[in-house]
Design a protein around this nucleic acid. Structure first.
Lengths: 335, 335
DNA sequence: CTGAAAGCGCTAACAT
DNA sequence: ATGTTAGCGCTTTCAG
C-alpha cells in the first residue's frame, strides 16, 4: 500500500505538507499543492483510515443497533440510514440485537474501543434507563454521538427520533371508524416493547381525543411469538373466543398480515367482517390480498433526521434533542 | 480511556508483558500473569481496537455487500451472516449497493484502506469479471478474504457459496407438475441478475432432466420494475395476453406475491387456475392467502459457510473454493 | 521470563 | 509556507 510518506518523498516535501494538502488545512503554495496532488493521484494514494482513526481518536463508522432486522420496517430503516450515512461518507456497522438486552449492553461496553463516530439505537425494547444513561454519558465523553430511534430517550440525554404515535393511531382509527368497523383492538407487544407501548398509548389517546367509547376496545397482547405468527395466533384466539372486535390496529404489517390470515382461515371476510390496519406500509403489503392498509412509518424522514444529527455533530453543533416524525396513511383494501 | 500502558504501570510490568498476558503469547510467570489480569479487570481495561488494527494491519470487521437489502431474502441473509460473524467476534460493515455496479467498484477501491478482515459480496448483479478479478487479487495480497454469495465467482479466485439452482428448480417444477399445473413460466430477471440467470438456467435444465416439453414454457422477464411490483406487472401483462401458462416459478417470494395478486385481480383462482412457487420461503409468505409455496434458500447454511471460510482464514488455511447449498421446498397453498 | 525500543500511518503543535 | 517532532495504543523483535 502506498502511504502518505511515499507521496511526501516522491513530491520532495514533508509528510506534514502532504497531510495539509490532502486535508485542505493551513496555507500551501499553489505549486506544491499541485505537485502533491499530482503525485498522490499518480501513485493512487489512499489514506489509511485506521491510522487516521487512531490519530484523530474517532473513525468514520456509525454503529446501528437493531432489535430485529428481520422485521420489514427495520430493514427499510437500515437501508435508509446506511444511505444517509453514506452521503456523509460514513460507514455503517450493523448489530442485530435479536431483542436481547444483554446484547445491547454488551455492545455498549465495547463501543468506546471501536473508534466509532456514533451509535444509532433502533431498539424497541424497554431497557434499563440508569444503565443506559451511564453508557450514554461515557460515549458522549468520548465525543461519540448516540441517537435513539423509535424510543423517546431524550430525558436520558440521548437525542431521539420518534414517530407521532397519537397521530398515527388517529389515522388508523379514523379510517376504521369511517368504514364502520367498531369496536377496535390494538394488536401488538406493549409489555416488552417501548415502541409498542407508545403506540398503544397513542391508540388510547386517539380514542379519547375522538370521544370514543374506549372501554369497548381491547388490547390484544402478543407475548411469546413474533411477527406474522404472533398476529395469526392472537387474532385466531380472539376470534375463537367470539370477540366483538371489528377493526384491528396492528403494530406492524407482519402482524396485520398474520391477523388477516387468521380471520380468513376462520371464514371471515376482510374488511367486511373485520378490518385491519398495519404499521410500516411495507412494499409487499400492497400486493397482499386484501391489500394492506397501513400507517406509513417514514423511514426516509428518520434517516434524514439521523443524517442531520451527524452533520450537526460534525460541525460541533448541539444536536436537536427530539425529532418527531409524522405518519401518513396508506389506504388500501384491508380497512 | 484506560490504556494498556495504564495497566502496565499499575501492575509494575512493561507494556510488552501486559500485551503478552492478554494475548496468551510467550511464557509468563503465573504470578505476573495473575497480577496483570487482576489489574486489568480492576481497571476495566479494554484494548483499543483501532490501535490493534493499525499495528496488526487488519481489523475485526467484515464488509457485507448487498445488492438490495430491502429484498427479504437478503435481509434474512444479512441477519444470519451478522450472527455468524459475531460468533467469531467479528463485526459487520453493511453496504447496500442498490443494484449499482459503480457502487460496488467504488467500495472495492476504498476497501484496502479500511482495515477490513474480509468482504462478503452478496450481489446478484452480473459484473465486469476482469475488473473484479483485479480487485480480488489486491485484496488477497492484503491478506483479506473475499467471498461471493449467490454467484459463482470461484473461477476468478473468489471462494463462492451458491445455491443448487437445478435442484431448486426441480423442486418447484415437480410440485407444479404434480398439481397438474402446466405449462410453466419462469418469472424473474435473467438479463441483469446473475442469480436470476442461474436460476433460469436451472429451470431449463430441470425441465430437460424431466423430459418435459420445454418449448411450451415461457420466460417472463422483469425489466424496469422491482420485487412485488415487477411480478404484478409482468404477470398481469401475460394474463392479459391470454397466456396458456398455468404454473409460475418466481425468482423471489415478493415477485410471486405480486404475480398472485395480478392473477387474483383478474378473477383467477390460485392455485386452481394458475399456481405459483416463490423463492426464499420468507416468514410472511406463510401468512399470505393463499400461502406461498416456496423454495427455501437456506440462509443459515450460507451463513455457516461464511463462518467456516473466515474460521479457516483465521487459521491461515486455504479456503474451500466452492460451497453448494441445497434447497428445500416449503409446500404451502399457492402451488 | 521480562523489558526496551521501534514502528504501524497519520495529524498537529511547534519551529523556522 | 513548510519542516521537525511527538505520539495516538498497540504488538513484536531483539536483548538480557
Amino acid at each position: 500500500m502506498v502511504t502518505l510518506l511515499d507521496v511526501a518523498r516522491r513530491a520532495r516535501v514533508s509528510s506534514a505538507t502532504v497531510s495539509r494538502v490532502l486535508n485542505g488545512a493551513g496555507r500551501i503554495s499553489e505549486s506544491t499543492r499541485r505537485r502533491v496532488i499530482e503525485v498522490a493521484t499518480h501513485l493512487g494514494y489512499q489514506p489509511n483510515q485506521v491510522a487516521k482513526s487512531l490519530r484523530l481518536g474517532r473513525g468514520r463508522s456509525v454503529a446501528l443497533l437493531i432489535g430485529d432486522i428481520e422485521q420489514g420496517t427495520y430493514m427499510a430503516l437500515t437501508k435508509r440510514v446506511q444511505m444517509a450515512l453514506q452521503a456523509l461518507d460514513l460507514d455503517l456497522l450493523l448489530f442485530n440485537l435479536d431483542h436481547r438486552e444483554d446484547r445491547l449492553f454488551g455492545f455498549l461496553d465495547r463501543a468506546p474501543t471501536m473508534g466509532l463516530l456514533g451509535v444509532v439505537m433502533a431498539v424497541p425494547r424497554r431497557m434499563d434507563g440508569r444503565r443506559l444513561a451511564r453508557h450514554a454519558e461515557q460515549l458522549r465523553a468520548q465525543g461519540m454521538l448516540l441517537v435513539a430511534v423509535g424510543q423517546r430517550l431524550n430525558r436520558l440525554g440521548v437525542p431521539s427520533i420518534v414517530h407521532d404515535e397519537v397521530a398515527g393511531a388517529e389515522l388508523a382509527i379514523d379510517r376504521l371508524v369511517a368504514g364502520g368497523h367498531w369496536p377496535l383492538a390494538y394488536l401488538g407487544r406493549t409489555l416488552t416493547s417501548a415502541t409498542g407501548g407508545a403506540r398503544y398509548r397513542g391508540f388510547r389517546a386517539a380514542l379519547a381525543a375522538r370521544g370514543a367509547d374506549a372501554a369497548a376496545c381491547e388490547l390484544w397482547e402478543c407475548t411469546d411469538k413474533y411477527r406474522a405468527e404472533a398476529g395469526y395466533h392472537v387474532v385466531g384466539e380472539a376470534l375463537r373466543r367470539g370477540t366483538h372486535v371489528r377493526g384491528v390496529v396492528a403494530m406492524s404489517d407482519e402482524m396485520a398480515l398474520g391477523g388477516i390470515a387468521a380471520a380468513l382461515d376462520q371464514g371471515l371476510a376482510v374488511p367486511r367482517d373485520i378490518a385491519f390496519v398495519g404499521y410500516g406500509a411495507l412494499d409487499w403489503g400492497g400486493y397482499a390480498r386484501p391489500a394492506l392498509t397501513s400507517v406509513l412509518v417514514n423511514a426516509d424522514a428518520v434517516a434524514e433526521a439521523v443524517e442531520e444529527l451527524f452533520r450537526a455533530h460534525r460541525e460541533a453543533q448541539e444536536p436537536r434533542t427530539l425529532t418527531i416524525v409524522q405518519p401518513a396513511l396508506v389506504a388500501r383494501a384491508s380497512a
